[in-house]
Design a protein around this nucleic acid. Structure first.
Lengths: 182, 182
DNA sequence: CATATCATGTAAGAGGTTACATGATTAC
DNA sequence: GTAATCATGTAACCTCTTACATGATATG
């Protein structure tokens, strides 16, 4: 019996519990579900998933069910897990955690060979434009008649993505003026 | 003589080198300088600074100068350090690394007690509004006549902050409609 | 039967956070 | 003299990433 009261959940573990509220899943399933449902604003790797599952099983937050074909090991959330998830969800979300390598490059741009900065900016802008298109397409698909019913949260996060990427693109378009580039 | 060719720089170490281009600094100085120059979009702790300095000293990227008063240990960038920094700066910046706890909460909002979601949103919005004001104030200060001369990069990153936070606030204002909140 | 996909996991290390310990110097 | 701040760093731990190892099953 490990950790009688369980350690405090980290956001990654809590998210896995949240996904398990829809029913038992294997680690493999969870990786896919996480990518689909929260992948746009939360990264997690397969390695992490198996580790968190093992930890949570030891803490009694999930239970391993009867193995299926191909070594499938379905994990189900327990009552303790539901409580832990509810406590986590009710807490104040931590502040955004943002690290933007491009802004580092920009901060040190005077040390960059001339012309290189413009290249870097163009490449980064293209990436953001691609992502904006992805978010837009996904949003339109969900808005279309006959679209699969989906939580409003999904629409809200897509809208976040669209607005953020649009703002970033607008910023890119102002950049030459700010930096005094040709 | 450790690591003849030096391991590849991580962004945090590289940033410290970038700051040292302005002249020798102690770990303490670097913490302050980093907070001021890149703190808006890159986090780093005191602990990390001392560790990276030790590693970089072992790799010959920085040199410890003659100690000053109060155990001050100025670190100066070496020629090897300058090369390593230039190589890092010239490389393609990694994609943004973003984790937004609020969006996790939103993704699982159906499991939240009624009313709690609105509270959470209000609190988070206030935080973003505060940050927007901070960026705006800093930007106006730099634009004012007689402002200290400062790199265009600083203005560009402030502009990024302003636009990002403004987009997030706009999104907050759309949220009730998207989520069907009163 | 070969290849792709499903599915498990381990190992090793990098990067990051929090908390603590220690002492010098400056300002009141 | 005492409190704040400067300045060093260590210890412990957590989280995340990358790479590897292993084998079952489905598809052509």
């Amino acid at each position: 019996m490990a950790a009688v009261n369980g350690r405090p959940l980290n956001a990654t573990a809590a998210s896995l519990l949240g996904l398990l509220l829809d029913g038992p899943m294997t680690g493999w399933d969870l990786v896919a579900a996480a990518q689909r449902r929260i992948g746009d604003f939360w990264t997690l790797t397969q390695s992490q998933v198996y580790r968190e599952l093992a930890t949570m099983a030891a803490d009694g937050l999930v239970e391993v069910g009867p193995p299926g074909p191909r070594e499938r090991k379905p994990h189900a959330i327990t009552d303790r897990g539901r409580e832990a998830f509810a406590r986590w969800l009710d807490a104040e979300p931590a502040p955004d955690q943002v690290r933007i390598p491009l802004l580092l490059t920009l901060a040190f741009a005077p040390h960059l060979p001339p012309g290189r900065l413009a290249e870097v900016i163009a490449a980064q802008r293209a990436g953001h434009a691609r992502r904006l298109e992805g978010y837009r397409a996904a949003r339109e698909q969900l808005r279309a008649p006959g679209a699969p019913a989906v939580g409003a949260g999904r629409l809200a996060t897509l809208e976040y993505g669209v607005r953020h990427e649009q703002a970033v693109l607008d910023w890119f378009d102002e950049l030459p003026a700010i930096l005094g580039l040709p």
